[in-house]
Design a protein around this nucleic acid. Structure first.
Length: 586
RNA sequence: GCGCCCUUAGCUCAACUGGAUAGAGCACCUGCCUUCUAAGCAGGCGGUUGCAGGUUCGAGUCCUGCAGGGCGCGCCA
């Protein structure tokens, strides 16, 4: 099953080939001029350039061959040689019925599925998530869902920041407060199974300890020693580490859960740590890791680099592993445990150089093939001043607080509109939450991930125009209509397209596969967001122009009902891929 | 200093890989609720695509230069 664009493209390709021209020229796209056509082919212009011929002549010959196609109401040449296609209503109806029968609503799966790890979220022990984690979580979750939906075997990995200096800092800070006493002993234990710290303790201790370490060298040295002892396996520290790890993870899962973000793996930096000694030896043996200014580095610069890329630091001059080392080890780990063929890193674009170093190292060492590692960088979320988002006080905004702010706006707006007042409080709260999350996610995902965007909560939750709540509103309106139809015993039937609004809606639905494949190929969810918005908008036009259940429209009712069902099916899939949940009513 | 990314309507963003009249949303203006949810729909206003060259039938898109902004450049992650 293919969409209309592809089907017409094949017909056009055959026509070009029959004229002795490359089938490549037969590419068909949605029309830039909906007033003139449904689809267009610009191939005659390119073909004319290649053959040094007159584009209108070529177009005329191609059109002659396509004229008899029963699917087309018209094929015409316009301007310098554009070929314009208008579909017959019967062809649109047939396509609509195919979409209606398809559980995937016209979306396909990839021919060759791969094992893919999506690394996103980037949470850390003891550090509450803030707005900086929002994009990584939202985009990564959508990428994970998209790849899985297209047929790949996918693991979402939180890549938990649970190792390194920060852990030593916490251990020492905790000890200085006289807490976690039993864990400070050097023996083998046993150690208490109750955590001596809460997430609140950690969130308070960490910033204070990090600040103190900058000033207080004695404190810093003790933290370094504690870090080394932890990594060397001191049982008490390990037990304490486990508690801090678990307490943090539980808190993080709450925030992620509020955003409907879920991971298959919570592998942390600590999990890659055991692989590092052998890997370092291997890198040395291969002649890649070499001493440099007291440290051990891998030179990754290439001849044709415009700028000399600094080497990857494998071991610091103190002998400790750097985060690049951990990242390379994690690649090895994913090859072993998941046999991953593709690893996608949804991480701030500012880390582009770092990932380039890591990827080059992994490829040089033979741990990964070219093209199997990709950094999906994203821009920052900025405040109204165009600088990275800060609270009024100038601090970072915690993610949990941000979500609550959005929820509060959603509640206020619902009350304002007099919506949901007759609903049970729990359902009202659920709706407010879904509205809030849709506002945050859609505004983020509708921007291309690579660019930065301005965060404006008032705008995102304004519930008008191109926003998440608008999409929810359309979906809920459809659900309401279908509930009513069910109550009236109205049955759906074969779709017969006649009205302009119906044509428009079917053409929009037909473009689903194009949108998903583009999002998949470019690894950019904004194409799904754009499509979802178009579907909602097309439906809204249809809704205004084509009564379904109203008296006097019995003849068209079964067809329109089926079209409405199909629209909802596709809209829900698109929203699901964006990670946006839809309430039953609002 | 070197490198990467940006600059499109008053504002926030698109533009299917070089094609027709550069599109949406917000804001503003005009219509439309005794009919399936008006958080909606229909229509209007709004542009020298930062500047200057170049490539070609054709450039927001490709090349060069300039201006402005953001970011990154070994022992933090």
């Amino acid at each position: 099953m293919s969409d209309l664009k592809t089907a017409l493209g094949e017909a056009a390709a055959a026509a070009f080939a029959a004229e002795g021209l490359s089938a490549e020229f037969g590419r068909v796209t949605a029309s830039d001029r909906p007033d003139l056509a449904d689809f267009q082919c610009n191939g005659a212009l390119a073909a004319a350039k290649a053959a040094k011929a007159n584009p209108r002549d070529i177009a005329t010959r191609v059109v002659e061959r396509l004229k008899t196609d029963p699917r087309l109401a018209s094929v015409e040449i316009a301007g310098p040689g554009f070929i314009n296609f208008k579909l017959a209503d019967a062809a649109l109806s047939e396509r609509a019925n195919t979409l209606a029968d398809d559980p995937r609503a016209g979306s396909e799966t990839v021919a060759a599925q791969r094992r893919v790890v999506v690394d996103y979220g980037g949470p850390n022990v003891a550090k509450p998530m803030h707005v900086g984690h929002l994009r990584a979580s939202i985009i990564g979750e959508s990428i994970k869902r998209l790849f899985r939906y297209r047929g790949d075997q996918v693991w979402g990995d939180a890549h938990f920041g649970d190792w390194g200096f920060q852990m030593g800092l916490l251990i020492v800070a905790l000890g200085d407060e006289g807490r976690g006493e039993p864990f400070m002993a050097e023996g083998e234990g046993p150690f208490p199974s109750e955590s001596p710290v809460s997430i609140e303790d950690l969130e308070r201790l960490y910033p204070a300890a990090a600040a103190r370490a900058k000033e207080d060298t004695e404190f810093r040295d003790r933290a370094r020693k504690a870090t080394m002892a932890l990594q060397a396996g001191r049982p008490g520290y390990r037990a304490l580490w486990k508690h801090m790890h678990d307490v943090s993870m539980a808190a993080l899962k709450r925030d992620f859960g509020a955003l409907d973000v879920h991971f298959d793996l919570w592998n942390g930096e600590s999990d890659a740590d055991p692989l590092i000694p052998d890997m370092v030896e291997d890198l040395k043996r291969k002649g890649l890791a070499v001493p440099d200014q007291g440290a051990l580095v891998v030179h990754v610069a290439r001849e044709d680099d415009k700028r000399k890329l600094p080497p990857l630091l494998v071991l610091s001059s103190e002998g400790s592993a750097m985060y690049g080392t951990t990242d390379v080890a994690t690649i090895l780990q994913r090859r072993r445990e998941q046999d991953a063929q593709l690893m996608l890193y949804v991480v701030d674009a500012r880390q582009a150089d770092h990932f380039e170093q890591v990827f080059r190292t992994a490829c040089l060492a033979g741990y990964a093939e070219e093209g199997s590692l990709d950094h999906l960088g994203f821009g920052t979320m900025n405040g109204a001043d165009g600088k990275p988002f800060k609270t009024r006080a100038g601090g970072v905004l915690k993610l949990g607080d941000l979500i609550e702010m959005a929820r509060e706006k959603a509640r206020a707006r619902l009350h304002e509109a007099g919506l949901g007042e007759d609903l049970p409080p729990a359902e009202f709260e659920d709706i407010a939450h879904k509205v809030a999350v849709s506002a945050l996610k859609f505004s983020d995902l509708s921007n291309y991930r690579g660019t930065s965007y301005v965060f404006d909560l008032d705008r995102f939750t304004s519930f008008e125009g191109k926003t998440g709540p608008y999409l929810l509103y359309q979906a809920v309106r459809i659900k309401s209509l279908l509930r009513k139809a069910e109550g009236e015993g109205a049955a759906a039937g074969a779709i017969a397209v006649t009205e302009p609004a119906e044509r428009d809606l079917v053409l929009t639905l037909d473009a689903f596969e194009t949108a998903l494949s583009e999002a998949y190929d470019k690894r950019a969810p904004n194409f799904i967001a754009e499509h979802a918005y178009r579907v909602a908008q097309s439906f809204s036009k249809f809704y205004a122009a084509c009564p379904v259940l109203a008296a006097g429209h019995e003849t068209t009712r079964p067809s329109r009902l089926r079209l409405v069902e199909t629209t909802l099916k596709q809209l829900l899939i698109a929203l699901e891929l964006l990670g946006i949940g839809v309430p039953e009513r609002m």
